[in-house]
Nucleic acid binder design. Structure first.
Lengths: 124, 124
DNA sequence: GCAATATACCTTGTATCACAAGGTATATTG
DNA sequence: CAATATACCTTGTGATACAAGGTATATTGC
């Protein structure tokens, strides 16, 4: 199924991909601020809440979660529900909250600079 | 001079760096929309107009310019000024203008999705 | 019971790209 | 004619989003 024969050349994939870089940790920490969640749940929420614009595959998410765990920004808990497969729940730690604040600032600085730059067509 | 002995640990460098990814081509094409410019000029303008937030070194910029040239989005012209070193001027092509429009859309979609996601603290 | 399917987690390999560091060439200046 | 400034270019490194493929457990249909 990999590629339709007449599909348009998608250099497109590249840009989206690169734009997402560095924002995923912020995104995940932000989603966890609302309460603990497990991997598949985060993937689904993210795709749903951004109409797929910021969607990721699970193969992308798990390394992010691992990095966050390693850094102490999230804690982990296994739970086996009465019906279904065991799930690994992630929860924000105190230091994760700090990091979330920091990353939001960083994002705002970056997005703000971009907005300002792109706004003025003619320089004074 | 590489690193001060008491400098704070800069994981910080990482995030900024990743966030910039994928946005540089848009930035450069946007700057060239105002008229042709040469490499060092772009570096200086970018640093000045974003207070360093989106600043890059020339070692970062030249590969970007080369990619843009390769893709046909900019054209190149050497000029030796009466006083000073020869300069390589870059100018937007017609296809570069199209690409600029496309990248702006892509950026707006991305930044818009981020803004919307980060805005609502509590989900309905 | 047992194949088929769904859910959920994890690993490996690849490509891209921002950056640091270092290099080249030309022009100006003391 | 050395020292400095301007401008361009190259190489190597690290970070990371993603595709592809894999594992394990639970449920469902026959």
């Amino acid at each position: 199924m990999s590629r339709e024969p007449n599909a348009p050349p998608d250099d497109r994939a590249g840009i989206d991909r690169e734009l997402k870089r560095g924002s995923l940790e912020l995104i995940v920490l932000h989603l966890l601020e609302a309460g603990e969640a497990y991997g598949y749940e985060i993937v689904a929420k993210l795709t749903a809440r951004t109409n797929g614009v910021l969607g990721v595959t699970d193969g992308t998410l798990y390394p992010v979660l691992y990095r966050l765990e390693r850094a102490g920004f999230v804690s982990v808990r296994w739970e086996t529900p009465e019906r279904g497969v065991p799930r690994k729940y992630y929860r924000l730690t105190a230091s994760g909250r700090d990091e979330l604040v920091r990353l939001r600032h960083e994002w705002n600085a970056f997005a703000g600079a971009m907005a300002k730059l792109l706004a003025n067509k003619e320089e004074k």
